[in-house]
Amino acid sequence: MAAKNGGPKAEDSGKTAVADTESVRLTVRKAYKMYVGGAFIRSESGRTTQVAEAPGSASKENIPRASRKDGRDAVVAARAAWDGWSARTGYNRGQILYRLAEMLDARADELTKSLVRGGLDPKQAAVEVAATIDRVIAYSGWTDKYQSLFSSLNPVAGPHFNFTSPESMGVVAVVAPARPALLGLAGCILPIIASGNTVVVLASEADPRTSVTFSEALATSDLPGGVVNILTGPVGEVLPHLAKHMEIAALDLHGVDAAISKAAEEQGAGSVKRVRVRSLNEAEWFDAAATESPRWIERFVEMKTIWHPAGQ
């Protein structure tokens, strides 16, 4: 983003700066921050992880290394945001997600470049960005429709009106898959927030940078702060604290190391968390029919049944 705004040859990134001092100005490097409660923050621990600026590059960039306390703060933000987000109409949530698609589309080049810097070839990266935007569109359409699919009027044998409908669960902690870093991130967040949940996400450790750019799109859509909170850092360090956190309703773990996810499941049992553990391969993330199925939403809603007498 800095490069794009600052220089005419954005795709060159910063690495040609030394080679041709006449035509390329010194680029502005970006401080990557995590997105919590609608704000961009460093880790409270002050720690960072260094990642190569691009494949093979000797230049390093600093990515925040989330701590236990960052996880805790993110949960507070997510919990605070849940009341409002879940109370919004499906129509409104849909409009906000559509706005997110607009913001992502406007950042398509930047996202593509970020994925390339994260190791993808440009064509692959462009496909992933397009698929991500389409996925957002798909879920923006789900926000006021899944209810009709999951709900039921139950023909109870008595003078009662009885119906069941879905509600959000609360705060869901998510570990996004390593790859695809962008599509996987969006693909696990969207079905969860579509129904009014809020999330604390541990982004891909393989390409954490892209999650930051994605956050910047979130921040400029109309999504209220705290609905999506994205942390970068080691899953093995932060996840156990989220899994134990009593304010979290559910865990959605993608591609997590078996021992870590087993431990998280055990810890999650402490407050009877709903836990989904999955490992989709990369191609499966691109299968729109499967990943845009309402089943993905259904997994993170509670069904509420209401009885009322029908009399006078």
Binding site: V156, H160, E302, M303, K304, T305, I306, W307, H308, P309
Partner: peptide
Amino acid sequence: AGVIWANTFNKFDPSSPFGGYKE
């Protein structure tokens, strides 16, 4: 809560989903 009884209580029916939130 997973089951809300309004102006009634402890009603059960096989066609009516039953189950909890939280713990």
